[in-house]
């Protein structure tokens, strides 16, 4: 089932077209990545999806309700954190949740305890938010987003600023939400590694336009590279070049990754008396991926 559908979304700020026609569809129970470098337009798109800014044109529908025409019903099915969750620092975590719960028509009070339990904040929930760590604020932010039992959850760079343990925890939490509660989660990020570990599908956005939408698996397997550290370099390059395309980078050689051929190539090298110091399968850096997808279009 499609929970969020975005069609030909555009936004002009002043004379500048910041978002140039974005189409996205989210399905139930999937984690969808929104990948792009800083300034690509991720946050601007998310602001439109959450009703904070008005699109110049295009349509957004959440669980079948049009966000422009039927704001209240659409927002009933959406939970979100745009950039950082800026909760009221002078209120306790609990009062913050009560505050936002009061804004949901027909809110069942038992949901409050459920949500607090879910994000694991029971012990500190009555402390003032200004005493919370960043990780706790992030969890409280998710708690407020989940209060209304949404079908769609939108998180803008949710792991920004968290420590590695926090990042791992957050990742697991998001995956569980999608799997156990059937939520559609849209996560934006500028880190390919994060999207790779977290998402089922991904849309790559650059300069306000989606340049590719695909499953993470398909995208990465077509883009994965092989890094060779070998002695002597030039001789190895000649041998590899007879089989595939090779790029020389500092003291390494880089080829495409091909699970069927990697073994063959390495045997050939060894047979020619070349010493293999290291051979490594590597994800492309986001930057390289971009170069690849956009055909040399630099990221500013």
């Amino acid at each position: 089932m499609i929970t969020l559908s975005v069609k030909n979304l555009k936004k002009k700020i002043g004379k500048k077209e910041i978002i140039k026609g974005i189409d996205i569809e989210l399905y139930e129970g999937e984690v969808f990545g929104f990948l792009g470098p800083n300034g690509a337009g991720k946050t601007t798109t998310i602001r439109m999806l959450t009703g904070l800014i008005r699109p110049t044109s295009g349509s957004i529908s959440i669980c079948g309700y049009d966000l422009q025409k039927d704001f209240t019903n659409a927002m009933m099915h959406l939970g979100c954190i745009v950039e950082n969750p800026e909760l009221y620092p002078f209120l306790s975590g609990y009062d913050n949740l009560v505050h936002f719960a009061r804004m949901i028509p027909g809110f069942q009070s038992k949901r409050l305890a459920e949500v607090i339990e879910l994000v694991g904040l029971s012990e500190r929930i009555h402390d003032k938010v200004k005493t919370y760590s960043l990780g706790m604020r992030q969890r409280l932010g998710i708690a407020q987003a989940l209060l209304g039992n949404p079908k769609v959850l939108i998180l803008d760079e949710p792991t920004n600023g968290l420590d590695p343990a926090g990042i791992r925890e957050m990742r697991q939490f998001i995956r569980d939400l999608a799997k156990n509660e059937g939520l559609s989660v849209l996560v934006s990020s500028h880190l390919l590694s994060e999207i790779q570990l977290l998402c089922d599908r991904v849309a790559i956005i650059s300069k306000g336009a989606v340049i590719q939408t695909d499953t993470v698996h398909a995208l990465l397997s077509s883009q994965e590279k092989m890094v060779w550290r070998v002695e002597p370099l030039q001789q190895a390059k000649q041998i590899l070049e007879s089989a595939t395309e090779v790029v020389e980078l500092e003291d390494c050689l880089i080829t495409d990754f091909d699970a069927n051929k990697a073994g063959l190539w390495s045997r050939e090298l060894v047979n020619s008396g070349i010493q293999i110091i290291e051979m490594n399968r590597r994800l492309p850096a986001l930057e390289d991926l971009f170069l690849e997808l956009t055909g040399g279009d630099r990221i500013e």
């Binding site: 959450t50 009703g51 904070l52 704001f71 209240t72 019903n73 659409a74 927002m75 009933m76 959406l78 979100c80 745009v82 950039e83 969750p85 800026e86 909760l87 936002f100 804004m103 949901i104 028509p105 407020q144 209304g148």
Partner: peptide
Amino acid sequence: KLLLTRPV
């Protein structure tokens, strides 16, 4: 941003 992303 939290206040205006409610169903109100």
